[in-house]
Computed example of a mutant assay.
Amino acid sequence: MLHAVGSRGWGFFRVIALTGSAAAQSLLAHPLQAQSSEPPAQYGWREAYGGFDAARDQWLAYSGMTFALRSPDIYSNGWRLRLGGGYGRYGYDSVAPHANCGIAVLNDICGEDGRAPQHFEVAHSYAEALLGYYLQLGRLTAKAFAGASMSTERHLTRDPNGEDDGTQVGIKGALELWLTVDTHSWTSLDLSYSTARDESSARWRSGWRVSPAFSIGPELRYDKNIETGENAWNGRAGLFTRYEWTGGELSVAGGGIWRVDEWSAASASAYGNINVLFQY
């Protein structure tokens, strides 16, 4: 789902930018600056990411940064600050209510009356500022985050049935787990929930290392928010490839996406995703 950024939305982005600047000056002093006699770290203390996700009638562009707070590098145990956001659009079909509906329902004048559905497009944006902790437990890597999130939606064509336009600010939590099974395989699970628009998400991946730097495998994803409905959610099943190097990685994924309502799948579409990440 995607949103347009109103004045409140841009204000939230400005607050995040100022927060990141202040944090970089006061909290993110690189430990190696105080210990110049030590050799440089293999990885940096900042991590920047960005990507693009697309399916039928929807797309999203996103980016963000994660900072290691007084840790030698991004892979050392310690506190993290993550700032992120994105913008995109999605579309859907709906039949508008009868112009003279009134209170008469016996003759079904408020029904669809065989009218063709109208296509609506919605602009969506989001932003978040999260504080978290990175912990290495043997072969398991765990990252937990909590903080503030903002979600904005605006219909580009007014839908009389749409009541969810505007900006909502809420609390978000996220948990990211990575398990190195052995030298040739790994698995990951990312979970998140935000009270802004009641958004929840889960993604599972299982990777097999064709080489030390190149992995392939399946992925599954679950997404739900206030727009999907009470008993409905969006599901994905696909394949991904991941290439990593010292200080970065590139991931490309694709497959099928469905709207699942009462465990009945519909509105099938293909999806594609590309994500790049750098540590410095």
Rank of each mutant, 00 (worst) to 15 (best):
L2M: 14
S7M: 15
W10C: 07
F12P: 05
R14T: 12
A22K: 06
A22I: 10
H30T: 14
P31A: 03
Q33S: 15
Q35L: 08
E38M: 09
P39R: 08
P40Q: 06
A41Y: 15
Y43F: 12
G44Q: 01
R46K: 14
R46T: 14
E47L: 08
A48Q: 15
G51C: 03
F52V: 05
D53R: 14
A55C: 04
R56S: 14
D57R: 09
W59I: 00
A61M: 11
A61T: 10
Y62W: 12
S63A: 13
G64R: 00
F67H: 08
A68E: 01
S71G: 08
Y75R: 12
N77T: 09
G78D: 04
R82M: 01
L83Q: 00
L83E: 00
L83C: 02
G84K: 04
G86E: 08
R89P: 12
Y90W: 13
G91F: 11
G91N: 02
A96K: 02
H98D: 09
H98K: 14
N100W: 14
C101M: 12
G102I: 00
A104T: 10
A104S: 15
L106E: 15
L106K: 08
C110Y: 04
E112S: 13
E112M: 05
D113E: 11
D113T: 05
G114W: 13
R115N: 12
R115S: 13
F120Y: 12
E121K: 13
V122F: 06
Y126S: 10
A127I: 11
E128R: 07
A129S: 11
L130F: 11
L131R: 08
G132D: 06
Y134I: 07
Y134F: 04
G138N: 06
T141Q: 01
A144V: 02
A144F: 04
G147N: 10
G147M: 03
G147Y: 09
S149D: 11
M150E: 10
S151D: 15
T157E: 12
R158G: 00
P160D: 05
N161M: 02
D165A: 10
D165N: 05
D165Q: 01
G166T: 02
G166Y: 04
Q168I: 10
Q168S: 09
Q168P: 06
G173V: 01
L175C: 00
L177W: 01
L179C: 04
D182K: 01
D182F: 03
T183G: 15
H184W: 15
W186K: 00
S194H: 10
S194P: 06
T195A: 05
R197Y: 09
D198Q: 15
D198V: 06
E199M: 09
S201K: 12
A202N: 12
R203F: 11
G207V: 05
W208V: 02
V210E: 15
I216D: 06
G217F: 08
L220V: 09
L220E: 00
N225D: 04
N225R: 07
N225K: 02
T228S: 08
N231L: 12
A232Y: 03
W233V: 03
N234Y: 13
G238M: 04
F240Q: 03
T241A: 14
Y243R: 05
T246A: 07
G247K: 02
L250Y: 05
G254T: 06
I257W: 14
W258N: 03
W258R: 06
V260I: 10
D261R: 02
A265S: 14
S267Y: 07
S269Q: 03
A270R: 13
I274T: 04
N275I: 04
N275G: 07
L277F: 07
L277I: 06
Y280V: 06
